[in-house]
Design a binder for these strands. Structure first.
Lengths: 351, 351
DNA sequence: CTGTTAGCGCATTCAA
DNA sequence: TTGAATGCGCTAACAG
């Protein structure tokens, strides 16, 4: 059905090699070049990447395995990843793990069968065993968002601990002492953020009373429920740290439904902000992850590895560059959701 | 690097054909079967789908082109599509069009180069010209969510017009007369929903005053701004129809920030509901699109076409089945966001 | 049930 | 600069 270079050969009278050279950017006579271009136009010829891949043993394809494709954070990252990959001529085969380690491992196998040149993984598993097959097969892997402490792969993430600590520091600097935390201890990123919170509080000689500490998963429900519980406390907190986007969304809805106003009655600082802060009134003060940079770095690292492997083909005992963990700094963007506090009581200035 | 069937041949002493037959589920002596299985285990052998594809001219891959991958509706659909495709052994190559027709056309070309067996498109273009290349190449295309009125491709969508009309009918039946509409006229689905609204209002001999009609795009901002404008009106509406998910999100946040309570002061019915309604209080009454079914039907249609083409290979002048447009019914799920109204004034019963 | 052979569409030697 | 020949890893006849 589709035209091949043999068809072009028939039309132009040139040889396969010449045509192939044209396709791969070689030098040839302008006259021949034109002939080929006309034939391509006529025949609607397109390179068969499968055949090309068989020869070059490169599929120009990378597998992207995500813990949950319906997650807003994931979608956004996926967009940037796709852009970067595409710009380099790579197609992304995206597989959803549904937050299930078994499906994750299966996705890896599946994609290996599809001959992906590399793998980008936003992992759900807590250990890196599931990466053995690609590593053994020599397929480069870059972990994104969540590190697994495996030195055999590269990893790009955000310094969650420091970022969370700085967010809390902000609250303390504004004078807050009764600080609540709604976070998650079910995934590594959530744990790191909690760690950062605790560390700063300790440094400041502050403590979180148990009723101010709401641990759960990264879900809207958790944020919504927990916030209501906090607001109904006899002595509610004056400020609250929200551990991720879903929690923010749920918590902000709870606040809006309540009598409490932000920041007069309750100050808020959040982690991740994909939607809410731009239109909530006042704008939220949030830790913003550099999603674009994370994606770009991930793609850059992966493509470099792929390149290296390609070159190592001719150079058998080439030195393998050591793997790295890139920890990017998140940025705090101040909105108006934190009020200044005098003593330990009411808000004084809503900034 | 990776093992091939020739390696298995060396280890087992069997011929390529036998091994190939094993891989494709043929019958062979249990003894040989075991030998092969052991060799596969040992060598970590995996079929090279690229080589297989070159022979069968099937990549077991489909391209999915979406208007905006960061969109929540899209993500959800993508999840279901991925599941269905995967179950059939197909990988999904997902490309984002960034709501740009040019990128959309480019995505199609790109994916054709990758030898996809079929294409699923959530289109941004208003005409179907960009589908000429795949159609000419004999690559089946299924449109999803948005129809383009092209009889050369299949299409799966929701009956937006009827669904919107029924949503409005609900408001009218509850006694509402002062009904506002926040919708979109920039995309086809939005237009269809508006069409449905107008049609029903006409049928009911009602009209929407200009200040009650808020047209814009499908964005949170539009929902938020428009809702505030409505609420600030000297004579605000008693009920409002919200045209899609983003609009709902923005509008609900506006209402929550205001003095208005739902449904006592304002009744709400919305279209699409991916997040909000489960936790807003009261739960929203919404038109729910059968996303799972839409995805399943899309995959089913596409795979059937691919199958047909495969079989037609041997049967040159096989009858091409006519293309179809599947219009699924959306369902109205009632929450508690619509109040009964007596006369034309205040809410009477919050249901 | 098994083996032999040919070829999918292309890139890449090596000669010319 | 161009052309002829070879093989990437696999499937699909066909013959045994």
């Amino acid at each position: 059905m589709a035209a091949t270079i043999r068809d072009i050969k028939k039309v132009t009278g040139l040889s396969l090699a010449t045509i192939s050279k044209y396709l791969n950017g070689g030098n040839l006579l302008p006259e021949n070049r034109e002939k080929i271009e006309r034939a391509i136009e006529e025949l609607h010829y397109e390179v068969n990447e499968m055949a090309r891949g068989l020869v070059t043993s490169q599929s120009k394809t990378v597998g992207v395995v995500v813990f949950d494709i319906a997650n807003v954070f994931v979608c956004t990252v996926l967009q940037y990843l796709g852009d970067g990959l595409r710009a380099a001529g790579y197609a992304a085969m995206i597989c959803d793990s549904h937050n299930d380690p078994l499906q994750e491992a299966d996705n890896i196998r599946f994609l290996m069968g599809k001959q992906v040149d590399g793998l980008i993984v936003l992992p759900v598993a807590q250990t890196s065993d599931f990466l053995n097959p690609p590593i053994r097969a020599g397929i480069p892997v870059v972990l994104l968002d969540r590190s697994l402490g495996d030195s055999r792969v590269d990893c790009v993430k955000v310094d969650n601990q420091t970022a969370a600590a700085e967010a809390l520091r902000l609250l303390v600097e504004y004078g807050h002492r009764r600080i609540a935390i709604i976070g998650s201890d079910t995934v590594i990123t959530g744990k790191e953020r909690l760690e950062g919170c605790f560390q700063l509080l300790k440094e400041m000689n502050l403590a979180v009373p148990p009723e101010y500490l709401k641990l759960g998963n990264h879900s809207i429900e958790h944020g919504y429920q927990s916030m209501w519980e906090l607001l109904r406390l006899r002595k509610p907190p004056t400020a609250v740290f929200l551990g991720n986007f879903e929690i923010i969304l749920g918590a902000v809805m709870a606040v809006n439904e309540s009598e409490f106003r932000c920041p007069a009655d309750l100050s808020i600082v959040g982690f991740d902000d994909l939607i809410v802060s731009n239109l909530s009134n006042p704008r939220l003060s949030v830790v913003v992850q550099p999603l674009r940079s994370m994606a770009d770095e991930t793609v850059r690292l992966l493509l470099r590895r792929i390149e290296d492997i390609r070159n190592a083909g001719s150079n058998p005992d080439a030195e393998q560059e050591p793997h790295m963990e890139l920890s990017l700094r998140a940025q705090i963007v101040e909105g108006g959701s934190i009020a200044h506090i005098k003593c330990s009581g009411r808000a004084v200035n809503s900034n």
